[in-house]
């Protein structure tokens, strides 16, 4: 069960109030007429589906009804960060791996990891 922080409401609410809406940061091709079948198919259907860090769109469906983004780990289900529409993630697959490596050697980092885990109740 997720316990999700809505960046617009400014509080943690239960998973039941939210709907996941798939991969975040997918932009519609600027000029559809000039887009090849391959590019259009990619835009519509092909997703990253990573085993690891994933940026995804959620909507606070029975709350403020606003869309926002979550960076989440798809194996541990840990919510790594929550950010508003139009913002960019600070945690990515690349820097998360680096951070994980460093964290095992650095106890202080471990403490900050624990802070990230607050968003989840498994």
């Amino acid at each position: 069960m997720f316990y999700i922080f809505c960046p617009y409401c400014g509080e943690h609410r239960e998973e039941e109030e939210f709907h996941p809406k798939g991969q975040a940061h997918i932009s519609r091709p600027e000029d559809p007429e000039a887009t090849s079948d391959e590019e259009w198919g990619d835009y519509l259907f092909f997703r990253d589906n990573p085993r690891g860090v994933h940026h995804e769109l959620w909507v606070h469906a029975v709350g403020c009804r606003k869309f926002f983004n979550i960076t989440r780990h798809t194996v541990s289900y840990e919510i790594l960060e929550v950010y508003k529409m139009g913002e960019q993630p600070s945690i990515t697959a690349e820097n998360y791996a680096a951070q994980q490596g460093a964290a095992s050697a650095d106890k202080e980092r471990n403490a900050s990891q624990a802070k990230h885990q607050e968003g989840v109740r498994a």
């Binding site: 998973e15 039941e16 995804e56 798809t74």
Partner: peptide, 13 residues
């Protein structure tokens, strides 16, 4: 479950 996931478990809701 509506979200992507590779953990072989599901949510209580």
């Amino acid at each position: 479950d509506g979200y992507n996931g590779y953990g072989q478990r599901g949510s209580y809701p």
